[in-house]
Deep mutational scan, measured.
Amino acid sequence: MTGIVKWFNADKGFGFITPDDGSKDVFVHFSAIQNDGYKSLDEGQKVSFTIESGAKGPAAGNVTSL
Rank of each mutant, 00 (worst) to 15 (best):
K56G: 10
F27A: 03
F16N: 02
G44Q: 05
K56F: 14
K6L: 06
T18Q: 11
K6A: 07
Q45H: 07
N62T: 10
D20W: 06
V63A: 02
D20T: 08
S53K: 14
D42A: 12
S53F: 14
E43C: 10
L41D: 01
T2N: 06
F8D: 01
P19C: 07
F14C: 05
N35Q: 13
I4M: 09
F16D: 00
V5K: 00
D11C: 15
I51A: 04
V28G: 00
I17R: 00
Q45F: 05
L41V: 05
W7A: 03
I33Y: 04
F49A: 01
I51W: 09
S23H: 07
H29P: 03
F30H: 12
I33S: 03
G13Y: 02
I17Q: 00
I33K: 02
G22S: 06
D36N: 12
W7C: 06
F30G: 05
G3R: 00
F27N: 02
H29Q: 04
F30R: 12
T64S: 13
I51F: 08
K12P: 02
F30S: 10
S23C: 07
V26F: 04
V5L: 03
E43Q: 15
E43N: 14
V63S: 01
K24F: 09
P19H: 03
F16E: 03
M1G: 07
V47E: 00
A32W: 03
P19E: 02
S48N: 09
D11G: 12
Y38C: 12
G44V: 02
T18A: 14
G3C: 01
E43W: 13
Q34W: 08
E52W: 11
K24L: 10
S48V: 10
V28H: 00
Y38F: 13
G61I: 15
T2C: 08
S48E: 09
E43T: 14
K46V: 10
A55N: 11
G15W: 01
G61T: 14
E52S: 10
M1S: 08
L66G: 07
S48G: 09
A60T: 03
L66F: 10
F8V: 04
G57A: 06
G57R: 10
N62W: 10
F27C: 03
M1H: 12
F27P: 03
Q34E: 10
S53W: 14
L41N: 01
S40W: 13
S48Q: 15
T2M: 09
S48L: 12
D11F: 14
S48R: 11
I33Q: 03
Q34L: 14
D11Y: 15
F49N: 00
K24T: 12
V28K: 00
G3K: 00
Y38A: 13
K12T: 06
E43D: 10
V63T: 02
T18R: 14
F49P: 00
S23Y: 06
L66R: 05
I33T: 03
G3V: 01
T2F: 07
S31A: 07
D11M: 14
S23A: 08
G54A: 10
L41E: 01
K24I: 11
F8M: 02
P58A: 10
N9C: 10
T50R: 09
A59G: 06
A60F: 01
K39S: 07
K56N: 12
N9I: 06
S48P: 00
D21F: 07
F8K: 01
D20I: 07
N9F: 08
F14M: 06
H29K: 03
G61D: 07
V28C: 07
P58T: 11
F30P: 02
S48D: 04
V47H: 01
G61F: 14
S23I: 06
P58K: 09
L66P: 07
A55G: 12
K12C: 12
P19I: 05
V26M: 05
M1A: 09
K12S: 06
F14Y: 14
G22N: 08
G13L: 03
I17P: 00
D20L: 09
K46I: 12
L41W: 04
G54N: 11
F16C: 04
D21K: 06
N35C: 12
T18E: 08
A59K: 13
K24R: 14
D25F: 03
G3E: 00
W7Y: 09
A10G: 11
G13N: 03
K6V: 06
F8G: 01
K46R: 12
S23D: 08
S48M: 11
P19Y: 06
P58M: 09
A55H: 12
S40F: 12
L66A: 08
D11S: 14
D25A: 07
S31Y: 05
K12R: 12
E52D: 09
F14Q: 03
G57T: 05
D25G: 04
V5I: 08
A60Q: 01
T64H: 14
G3S: 00
Q45L: 08
S23Q: 08
V63R: 00
S40T: 13
N62L: 08
T50E: 10
V63F: 01
A60P: 01
V63W: 00
I33M: 05
D21I: 08
D25Q: 07
G44R: 05
N35F: 11
F14L: 05
S53M: 15
Q45W: 10
N9Y: 06
A32E: 07
S53T: 13
I51K: 08
G3H: 01
I17L: 07
T50K: 08
T50W: 10
E43S: 15
E52A: 08
S53V: 15
V47L: 03
V47D: 00
G13Q: 03
F16I: 06
L41S: 01
Q34I: 15
G15S: 00
M1R: 11
D25Y: 04
M1T: 08
S23V: 05
I4Y: 12
H29M: 04
G54F: 09
A55I: 13
